[in-house]
Design a protein around this nucleic acid. Sequence first.
DNA 1: GAACCGATTGCCT
DNA 2: GGCAATCGGTTCG
Length: 192
Amino acid sequence: MIADTGDSLTSSFFARPVLTVARDLLGTVLVTASGARVRIVETEAYGGTDDPASHAGRGPTRRSEVMFGPPGFAYVYLVYGVHHCLNLVTGPAGDPSAVLIRAAEPLAGVAPRPDTPAHRLCAGPGLLCRSLGIDLNLNGAPVAADLPGAGALRLLAGGEPGPVVASGRIGIRRATRRQWRFTMAGNPGLSR
DNA sequence: GAACCGATTGCCT
DNA sequence: GGCAATCGGTTCG
């Protein structure tokens, strides 16, 4: 029997403007190949027409080339040589934009850790990737359900996210005034 | 080719 | 609050 993917997000969801996708990803459920499920509670938008804080800001590199491709694919990179960050490519092909998944709240299948409350296991982009086993192997992987080979990562449509707050992006030095960070108000799983 | 910086986190004082 | 870990990209010589 074929798995029911009727609630899975497809390319048309990701093909929209990056700010719209970043906002609408709140409340959706990320599912890994191992069956872990987390609800996204914090995102940030990067790229678009002119974003000096984006990896794509000065043309494609070997690292950022996925951002320049079609929507619905994962862009995973290494920060500070230590942690991985998960992004989802948005907009039409050629528009180098993506949404950074900054935090989520575990629903099922996330391994506990000593001295870490469950709701903090994915409370940051690096923590989220570590808890879900996401690394460079998933860079360029198809996420939208209609793409060939999709399945290593899936997104399920979520319920109402509740009140959403737009604020300045964090952890960067450039273009911090843009209100491109989206959070579920008051959620305990937000990054610090 | 060397020096510096970065979409982070955890451990130190 | 400071800082190390550690790698890719950018900048400068």
